[in-house]
């Protein structure tokens, strides 16, 4: 799990962002990407692969590896490491390949 340094979670200077993760309430900070917020919550797995169903989590955090794919606000295959966390976001882990129409 990743831990925020004290100066990085000073609530006076940083804005909390509320979102849901697989239906449960969760919290991160402004400036986090979705993938970073998940890692801070101890979620190192964010999807199962389309080929074998094995668990994966963010590997590169810079938009290259596509292992941080999640469903965001109903849209699948979003790169969690590139999407900034927003208030009220609905984030779901992605099981296998993107569903048609999502």
């Amino acid at each position: 799990m990743f831990q925020r340094l004290p100066e990085a979670c000073d609530s006076a200077s940083r804005t909390s962002i509320h979102f849901t993760l697989d239906g449960l309430p969760a919290e991160g900070f402004a400036g986090d990407t979705v993938a970073a917020a998940l890692l801070a919550l101890g979620r190192d797995t964010c999807r199962q692969t389309a080929v074998s169903g094995s668990p994966r989590g963010p590997y590169c955090m810079m938009g290259v590896c596509f292992d941080c794919l999640v469903v965001i606000d109903g849209v699948g295959n979003r790169q969690g490491c590139l999407v900034p966390l927003r208030e009220g976001m609905v984030v779901e882990t992605q099981a296998g390949k993107r569903e048609i129409g999502r």
Binding site: M1, F2, R4, G31, A36, L39, Y59, C60
Partner: peptide, 15 residues
């Protein structure tokens, strides 16, 4: 590099 990105952008360190 991923851990470094988390440090720079979110002030996070691996525990």
């Amino acid at each position: 590099g991923a851990a470094q990105t988390l440090l720079k952008a979110s002030g996070m360190v691996p525990q």
